[in-house]
Write a protein that binds this DNA or RNA. Sequence first.
RNA 1: UGGGGCGUAGCCAAGCGGUAAGGCACGGGACUUUGGAUCCUGGAUGCGCAGGUUCGAAUCCUGCCGCCCCAGCCA
Length: 559
Amino acid sequence: MNEEGIKFGGFIQDIIEEDIASNRYGGRVHTRFPPEPNGYLHIGHSKAICIDFGLAEANGGLCNLRFDDTNPSTEDVEYVESIMEDIRWLGFDWDDRLYYASDYFDQLYEYALQLIRKGLAYVCDLSAEEIREYRGTLTEPGRNSPYRDRSVDENLDLFERMRKGEFPDGSRTLRAKIDMASPNIVMRDPVLYRILRVPHHRTGDKWCIYPTYDYAHPLSDAIEGITHSLCTLEFEEHRPFYDWLLEVLEIPQPPKQIEFARLNLTYTLTSKRRLRRLVEDGYVSGWDDPRMPTLRGLRRRGYTPESIRTLCERVGVAKANSVVDYAFLEHCLREDLNKRALRAMVVLRPLKVVITNYPEGQVEEFETENNPEDPSAGTRKVPFSREIYIERDDFMEDPPKKFFRLAPGREVRLKSAYYITCQEVVKDPSTGEIVELRCTYDPESRGGMTPDGRRVRGTIHWVSAAHSHKAEVRLYDHLFLTEDPEEGGDFIANLNPNSLEVLTDCRIELALAEASVGDRFQFLRHGYFVVDPDSTEDRLVFNRTVSLRDTWQKIKDKS
RNA sequence: UGGGGCGUAGCCAAGCGGUAAGGCACGGGACUUUGGAUCCUGGAUGCGCAGGUUCGAAUCCUGCCGCCCCAGCCA
């Protein structure tokens, strides 16, 4: 159950409850998260992680981390470490239950021998192309391999020699003997082992034959005592083989595979190949570019693991393919950050304001809350002086109807400070650009309120010119212009040319100067920001994680 | 054209024969020293379509339609 009282896990939780009630696994619940170490984890994986770890935890069970490392030609240790780091970051823990499918290569080999002895597996000399030809098509049955009826002894001998490296790569395979006419193509004598002379990142050159996923996965589950093997929809047609294997091998209390729909988000790509293209062709700065949907990218962008977990819980678990609104993730993020992020005043595009009736050289300090949502976050002092910076967007020379900010002759409140009224607009005589505003303040409005109780609609943020630091701020937007990045067939064409805007002349209030990498803040009236690792001793760099909801923008858009 | 799966508001998603939860998004309004947050408030006479069973169907039956997945010695 989550905070809304909604059950997490949908139909899978129902199945688990039934199994507990019927004592199917002696009341045990044991899942596993089985990543292949051939890439970085992305937002899509987080749903599987939340389901695998979350459902085990919710039912008093355990979840193993198991690297599905059965294909050394695409895998690498480099990914093992990053995957573990990302899972921990999300907040899940596998304790001492870290496994690798490769841990079971010996046992898997023994099981293969058993299959051969039972007459349920054979060594096939067909080439990859021939196997494909013999397999038939979606509508036509396949044909039996001419090697299908070899004797048990011959198969045993050949398989042994495959293992010893007597045959070249790809020359032979071990196949299950099931049914070449099955309407389910997976059941048409699937390949169990292939010859591959590639050193494995864990077993080195001990093996030159490697098990396929179809063969290794059910058995790895069985060996670990997994009860519920949760995976995505595309493995549904593999389930008959999963069950077949465990049955013919007479595995007691066989685990059950249950499939659910993967998480898709609008404006987001999760295909490994495509993400790689973005990185390799330089469309983003790397796998941790803040615009990437990888967990390292989201982390650098400032997303909280809690927000991602919340999204996964709220999105639910079902079997219908779906695409979740990216706005839903942003909602979860804002909700989390709103409660936790300290507030700060930062002027992104500075416009100088001179308060003409404020004594030169005078400095006052105003107290302001660190987080209005959390009184325990306390308050801080912000220095105020005669020259300040405000946001260029907070001034309009000829404002439209509902503009509540500064304009000639208009009064606004400077957050936690004074009311000021714009008396004069100073422009660069050659360009016409507004370079400075000359305003007056009302000494009676100290702290942001006047004795006469006069109403001021607009409150804007500011920073004292002499008491602020320069900083760089990177504004991010969706990486793609279209909800479906694949729209039109070419995702590169849908890239958002303005997904990154770098602002180098921002002014941050003093309190921010001591922030360190990874610290998150709410810049008042702008959004949530995080300190980027590119920051240096004398120059902080912030990434905009997500903007605040902007109803002014909507009002503007309407008119 | 074989097999498997799925179709409840713009997007997720409850519901499991008794008369359509909830969230996001969107629209009103209140409040507000963040045009933030918060709080009210609005939306399916309808559950892919068509028949049927039943006093009663999103829920059961039949037929149709649409979308997704499968022909790697990838996972």
